[in-house]
Structure formats: structure tokens, C-alpha cells
Design a protein around this nucleic acid. Structure first.
Lengths: 214, 214
DNA sequence: CACTTGTATATACGAATGTATATTAAAATA
DNA sequence: TATTTTAATATACATTCGTATATACAAGTG
């Protein structure tokens, strides 16, 4: 089969003759899986058949795209991670004079918590259960964010002629705290979010102050 | 049935005529369930039959002690919470002049991470997946520890004539960070633990310094 | 001792799951 | 258009699960 034929055409999307599905994409399955996770459903509790039902495909069609559930789960993490990465990257570029990188990032993060709840669920709440590969993947994303923040901090401190003792510990503390609170927020009603956000910013400021002190 | 007959006698424990089990206690089932959880098995993935097998009882005997899996899970959390509570209480009483409450508590916590891995697994890593009641119970324990720490902090600050701006935020930040790292440590080899512990103490000190500054 | 009561087991059933195999339709190619 | 190749479905099977019902043993009571 040629490369071209792999592309899903408009015709493919719309054709559905005799109860037979046109081409199914990997992404369709991934999104079907995401649509099932929520506060009370963890990805590790999803069954292959359940996902197939949600994607409107036959159970066996699943195997055309993923070796098993674990492979799907990793793809989901990758997607969520990429989204968060992109979001934080944009936030970083958007930093103004009156708002620090940290505050801007936290605000962006909180926005995403509200708009892309399901995506973040995986990273924030399910990073500690599941297969080794799964947990490893989540952990890898966490340390990635830590590293980025660490670089930011060093740059900022240099610019303002301040000293920071353990930049990697400061960024680790901030990252872990923000992510932990992020997982917590997913359970709270939205009207509490502004308050939680304020508190979170205060807590992060403490860490920063404590980190650069003396 | 009288109260007395409920007590498990020595005879009960040892008698096992005709393949028939003597009296089974709630605790036996709880421990059987704990023996199944680990880095790769979350409590929410355990089946009733699996636990029954592990406890060497018939599947239906489970119902004599628990309405369903959810009720067992709550009992497990309660047990883990009580253990951790007791441990931290002892640590607090053991505070000396040269070691602060915080350091003593963290050290006690780390010790428990090594000796009672399975107990802590529930509280540290599975607090964000599962039923509403389940997550609520875990969250309740977390805030309990926060509150205790908050009181400690206020007392300490008064004693040393220092000011602390947001004691409840300081204790929240510390608690959440320590618990997050606790969940992380469960995946790391023991030889890394001392290093991680040192880092954790440094991070907590930052929060404290940032919290009392000015 | 007989008798009642409580507790564990045995058996069974329907539902759901992962996956193997065979089939069939659509798309690509010639 | 005829043929091949690819991707979806249909059917089927062995497991496992939660739990309903019925049964058997042990302990408590008289």
C-alpha cells in the first residue's frame, strides 16, 4: 500500500456502506479512549472492548493500531504530554514584565486544567499506577518540566544578579507541588479554582523565596 | 450469637476439619488484600475472587465481612492512615533539641516507606483513582496531617518569636510535597533513598524559610 | 444430647473480557 | 475492469468475574 493511500480522504470519512467502517485512524481510537476517562474512571480500568465500543469499531480492529492496551496508554500519555508541553511553551513566550514566568505558567496550567481535563488526568493522577513503562513515561515528562523550569530559574537569577543555591531542587519542589495540586483540583468545583490558584501561587512564591534566600 | 462466641479462640484458629475453615476475621481479608498490592498492582485492579484466593476462602465468604470491594478498600485506607498517624505521633513526641519536628517527621516517614511499603502505597499513590468515597477518605487523611503540622508550626513560631504569614499554606505545601515524593520513592531502589531524603529535607527547609521570611 | 443459629463452602449462571480464526468489503494496483 | 492487498467485521472459545442459591459443618443454647 502506498503512502498516499494511507491518508484518510474525505470520501473515506463519509463512506459507510453496508455497515462497514471506512478507515479508522489511530487518533480515533485514542480519542475514544480519552472520552471514557474521568474522575471515576482511570485509564487502567478501561477494557479493550469498551474502547472499541466507544470508537464504534469491532473489538479486533483495535489490534490494527495497537499491540495491546499498554501501547494505547503510552500513546495517550505522549499526546497529553505534548499538549502540556506546547501550552507551557506558549506561556513562557508570552511572559510580560508585570507577570513572572512562574505566575504565567501556573495560570496557563490552571486554564488547561479546566479546558483539557481529560488530557491532564493521565499525567496528574494516574502516574503512579499502571505498568512500569507507563509510570516511567509519566515520570519522564515530569522531569522534563523540572529541567525546563530549572533553566528558566538560572537565567532569571543571572539577569537579576541574585543567587540561587539549589536550582534543581527549587524547580523540583515547584513542579511536584504544582502537579500534585493539579491532580487535586480536578476533583474540586470550578468556583473554588480561583482561590486554589491564588494559594498555589503563594506556595510557589514561598519556595522561590526560600530558594534564593541569602 | 453471644459476644463471647465471636472471639476467635485458639481452637478455632487451629481446627480445620474436613477442608473447612475455622473462623475468618476481617483482618485476615484485609491483610490478604494488602499482600496483593505492589508497584504494579493497584487496589482498584484487584478482584473479589483474587482476594478470596489469597485469603484462602471461598469467594462468597468475602461478603460475610464486606459489602463489596469498596468497603474493603475503605477499611484498608483506614488501617494505613491509622498506622501513619501513629508513626508521626511517635516521631513528634521523640523530637529532640538538635532535630526539628520537621526533620524528625520526615525521617520517620521515610523509615515507614521502607518498612511498610504496601500500607503507604494506598495513601501515596492511589489517592487519585477509584471511587468518590475512596478518594475522599485519602484526602481527609492528607488534610488531617496538614492540620497537625499547621498547629506545630504555629507553636514553634510562637516559641521562637518569629512570624509566619500563612501557616496553613506552608503546612499544605510541605505535606503535599512530602507525600508526592513519598509516592515517587516507592519506585526507586533503596540505595537512592538517603539522597532523596536529603533533597526532600532541603526542599522542605526552603518552604519553611520562604514561609517565615520577613 | 437435640436443636437452633451463624458461618463457610459448593455449585451454578449470566455477563464481560481478550483474542484466535475465518470471512468479507474496500482500496490499490495493474 | 480484473486482481491483489489491506483493513474491517463476524463468529467463536476459554477465562474470569460478581453474585444468587442451596448445602454442610461448627458453635452456642437449652
Amino acid at each position: 500500500m502506498s503512502k498516499k493511500s494511507q491518508v484518510k480522504t474525505l470520501q473515506n470519512r463519509l463512506t459507510k456502506s453496508a455497515g462497514r467502517k471506512a478507515v479508522i485512524s489511530r487518533e480515533d481510537v485514542i480519542h475514544a479512549a480519552f472520552s471514557l476517562v474521568g474522575p471515576n474512571r482511570s485509564v487502567s480500568s478501561l477494557s479493550l472492548r469498551e474502547i472499541a465500543r466507544s470508537a464504534h469499531i469491532a473489538p479486533n480492529s483495535f489490534y490494527r493500531h495497537f499491540k495491546d492496551m499498554d501501547e494505547l496508554t503510552l500513546a495517550m500519555i505522549a499526546l497529553a504530554g505534548r499538549s502540556l508541553n506546547q501550552l507551557l511553551g506558549e506561556a513562557r513566550r508570552r511572559v510580560s514584565k508585570d507577570k513572572s514566568v512562574v505566575v504565567t505558567s501556573i495560570e496557563a496550567f490552571m486554564d488547561m486544567l479546566e479546558s483539557e481535563e481529560r488530557l491532564l488526568h493521565l499525567l496528574l493522577r494516574e502516574g503512579s499506577v499502571g505498568s512500569d513503562r507507563y509510570r516511567n513515561a509519566v515520570e519522564q515528562f515530569l522531569t522534563h518540566f523540572e529541567d525546563e523550569l530549572c533553566l528558566d530559574l538560572i537565567r532569571l537569577m543571572k539577569a537579576s544578579n541574585q543567587q540561587i543555591m539549589y536550582p534543581h531542587l527549587v524547580s523540583k519542589a515547584i513542579t511536584r507541588l504544582v502537579f500534585a495540586q493539579g491532580g487535586y483540583i480536578l476533583d474540586r468545583p470550578k468556583k473554588e479554582h480561583p482561590m486554589i490558584k491564588e494559594d498555589l501561587i503563594k506556595m510557589v512564591r514561598m519556595i522561590l523565596i526560600g530558594g534564593v534566600a541569602k
